[in-house]
């Protein structure tokens, strides 16, 4: 468990680093996925296998795919470096090759050790830290660290799981009614015996979000601004 924790913690830290340093959204998304995978390992190390599996299914399976879809829909080339001026950035500027420039192509030399193109691109797209954001997030980290340090001594140790959680991990329900800690059965019992109302409310929330997302993303909604087709607007311009 110790080893699993250290490994996954490192993986998720590495993924986070990729996420916050990459300019290219697809690389950043990859970083996010790695971080999520690492977190799943952390969950497993903390005796929460069901959460770990959920993490992979929901985040890696569903959310990441959704992000990818939207990345394909929209223009992934960001304007941070190309267009210094803030404010509205017209699509013409994005699609105009003269202005978009792009990274200068390095001359290739034969017989030389060549760093793979993906790696150079990744290295190229690392962005410099922004001082203000850095200061803020570091001071937040300092606050958190101080808070963690102030936790009482009992928090130095997890202690062993009590014997009452010694049930079989993947059995639907063990014969003597003893459930394993973090097992699917235990978590479901918690949901439906402990917090059924919250569960129902959250399902309602997801339903509402579904409807909202459909409404927002629909193309032609007469009378609702922002739902027009891009092409049509361009015609008007």
């Amino acid at each position: 468990m110790e080893v699993l924790f250290i490994l996954s913690a490192l993986i998720s830290l590495a993924g986070t680093l990729i996420l916050i340093t990459q300019k290219n959204p697809v690389y950043a998304l990859l970083g996010l996925l790695i971080a999520f995978g690492g977190s799943a390992g952390v969950f497993k190390a903390l005796d929460a296998p069901f959460i770990a599996v959920s993490q992979i299914i929901i985040y890696a399976g569903a959310l990441a795919v959704m992000f990818l879809f939207v990345l394909m829909f929209t223009d992934t080339r960001t304007q941070d470096d190309r267009l210094k001026l803030p404010g509205a950035v017209g699509s013409r500027a994005v699609f105009n090759p003269k202005e978009s420039g792009g990274p200068a192509k390095a001359k290739k030399k034969k017989n030389e050790f060549q760093v793979p193109a993906a790696v150079t691109a990744a290295l190229d797209s690392i962005q410099l830290p922004k001082p203000m954001a850095m200061v803020l997030s570091l001071s937040l980290l300092v606050c958190f660290t101080a808070a963690i340090a102030k936790l009482p001594a009992e928090f130095n140790d997890f202690g062993p799981l009590p014997a009452s959680y010694s049930g079989a991990m993947f059995a639907p329900s063990s014969e003597d009614g003893v459930l394993a800690f973090g097992s699917t059965a235990a978590v479901s019992k918690t949901i439906f015996e402990g917090f059924p109302l919250a569960f129902e409310v959250v399902s309602l929330l997801i339903f509402a979000a579904l409807l909202g997302a459909v409404l927002l993303a629909r193309r032609h909604l007469a009378g609702i601004p922002g739902t027009q087709d891009v092409g049509k607007e361009r015609d008007h311009a």
Binding site: A48, I51, S54, Q55, I58, Y59, A62, L63, M66, F67, F69, V70, F73, T74, D75, T78, Q79, A88, V89, G90, S91, V94, V187, I191, A198, V202, S203, L205, I206, A208, A209, L210, G212, A213, V214, L215, L216, A217, R219, P225, G226, T227, Q228, D229, V230, E233
Partner: peptide
């Protein structure tokens, strides 16, 4: 944790829809 995941999923759904809407209008994200 499960609740947070559910809320996060809802949030991402709505958020991405908003981004698509913004993109349509501004041609940029």
């Amino acid at each position: 944790t499960l609740m947070v995941m559910a809320v996060a999923a809802a949030e991402v759904g709505i958020g991405l829809a908003i981004i698509v809407a913004v993109y349509r209008r501004k041609h940029t994200a």
